[in-house]
Amino acid sequence: MSVNDTSTTSSVDVFDISGRVAVVTGAASGIGQAVARHLAACGARVACADLPGEPLEAVVEDITAAGGSAVTVPWDVTVEEEAEAAVATTQDRLGPLTLAFNAAGIANATPALDMSLSQWQRMYDVDCTGVFLASRAQGRAMIAAGGGSIVNVASMSGTIVNRGLVQVHYNSAKAAVIHLSRSLAMEWARQGVRVNTISPGYTATPMNTRPEVAEQARQFAEDTPLGRMAQPEEMTGPAHFLLSDAASFLTGHDLLVDGGFTAW
């Protein structure tokens, strides 16, 4: 059965991803790490991709120690050649790629009037161009495999402007990720590849405990209708849904996972 053919799929197994090959960028920390662990726990064979180093190795060691299937794939998402190489490595080691979760990203804050061009460009290189390069390489592989699902991590900051945070580069880059993903979804819809985004609200990741926002963490929680920030693990369910055949008729969608923040 094709990865997008659900004609014989029952309601019991539409969430089943066991045996599927997935790649997760940004797997060394935060949401990417949580999703990589989750997918492996659900039986997927997971390529954990991030900058090389001990944090990435530790994630894969933990997954394999728990009985999961995972490999490390060193990958700087800003380098074009590394995207194709990383996908090729994933397929050589694990099999045909049909699932991808792109979480690699950075964040920082500076008033627009004080922002250097290099700071602006670095944000776009990682948070937007990196997503494009990853998605393009993954899309090529999935089209060749008969289909698949890509989920890119955007942010509620791609929809709203956060009170108290001066991050025009981050906000606009995440808005670009949403529209990039919609555009790819439309290009690849007839070729069996779905592309969606999740837009987390305030989440207790290293990104949201960086020095310039640490003092605002309590305010982040108070401003969220549910009264707290999310834990990274709370993004695994939405990610799993969008990746799985349960979302087989869903593409070009941005799923806000924000504790109700954007409903104010």
Score class of each variant (00 low, 15 high):
residue 1 M to C: 09
residue 5 D to F: 08
residue 5 D to M: 08
residue 6 T to H: 00
residue 6 T to F: 00
residue 7 S to E: 05
residue 9 T to H: 00
residue 12 V to S: 11
residue 15 F to Y: 13
residue 15 F to K: 09
residue 18 S to W: 08
residue 18 S to R: 14
residue 22 A to K: 06
residue 22 A to N: 07
residue 27 A to T: 06
residue 31 I to L: 01
residue 35 V to R: 01
residue 36 A to W: 05
residue 38 H to Q: 12
residue 40 A to T: 06
residue 40 A to Q: 06
residue 40 A to S: 15
residue 43 G to E: 07
residue 44 A to C: 10
residue 44 A to D: 06
residue 45 R to N: 14
residue 47 A to T: 09
residue 50 D to I: 08
residue 50 D to F: 11
residue 51 L to A: 13
residue 53 G to K: 11
residue 53 G to H: 12
residue 55 P to Q: 13
residue 57 E to Y: 06
residue 59 V to H: 07
residue 60 V to M: 09
residue 61 E to Q: 15
residue 62 D to T: 15
residue 68 G to L: 03
residue 69 S to M: 11
residue 71 V to A: 02
residue 74 P to S: 06
residue 75 W to N: 02
residue 77 V to T: 11
residue 78 T to W: 01
residue 80 E to D: 15
residue 84 E to A: 15
residue 87 V to P: 01
residue 88 A to P: 01
residue 89 T to E: 13
residue 89 T to V: 07
residue 90 T to S: 05
residue 93 R to G: 02
residue 94 L to W: 06
residue 96 P to N: 10
residue 100 A to E: 01
residue 100 A to Y: 01
residue 103 A to Q: 00
residue 104 A to W: 02
residue 105 G to L: 08
residue 113 L to T: 12
residue 115 M to V: 09
residue 116 S to M: 12
residue 118 S to L: 15
residue 120 W to K: 11
residue 120 W to V: 12
residue 131 V to G: 00
residue 135 S to F: 00
residue 137 A to W: 00
residue 139 G to C: 08
residue 139 G to S: 14
residue 141 A to H: 02
residue 144 A to S: 15
residue 146 G to Y: 10
residue 146 G to K: 11
residue 146 G to L: 11
residue 147 G to L: 10
residue 150 I to W: 00
residue 150 I to L: 01
residue 156 M to Q: 10
residue 157 S to R: 04
residue 161 V to P: 00
residue 165 L to W: 01
residue 165 L to T: 09
residue 169 H to P: 02
residue 172 S to A: 13
residue 172 S to I: 09
residue 175 A to N: 04
residue 176 A to S: 13
residue 179 H to E: 11
residue 179 H to F: 08
residue 180 L to E: 04
residue 181 S to Q: 02
residue 182 R to G: 12
residue 183 S to Y: 05
residue 185 A to E: 08
residue 187 E to Q: 10
residue 189 A to K: 11
residue 190 R to G: 06
residue 190 R to E: 14
residue 199 S to Y: 00
residue 205 T to A: 08
residue 206 P to N: 12
residue 207 M to N: 11
residue 209 T to C: 12
residue 211 P to I: 11
residue 214 A to V: 15
residue 215 E to W: 10
residue 217 A to L: 15
residue 218 R to D: 15
residue 218 R to S: 14
residue 219 Q to H: 09
residue 222 E to W: 03
residue 223 D to P: 02
residue 224 T to D: 05
residue 226 L to E: 09
residue 228 R to V: 04
residue 233 E to R: 05
residue 235 M to N: 00
residue 235 M to W: 00
residue 237 G to T: 06
residue 241 F to Q: 04
residue 242 L to A: 02
residue 244 S to C: 10
residue 245 D to N: 14
residue 251 T to A: 04
residue 255 L to H: 07
residue 256 L to F: 03
residue 256 L to T: 08
residue 258 D to N: 07
residue 259 G to H: 04
residue 260 G to N: 06
residue 262 T to Y: 05
residue 262 T to A: 08
residue 263 A to G: 14
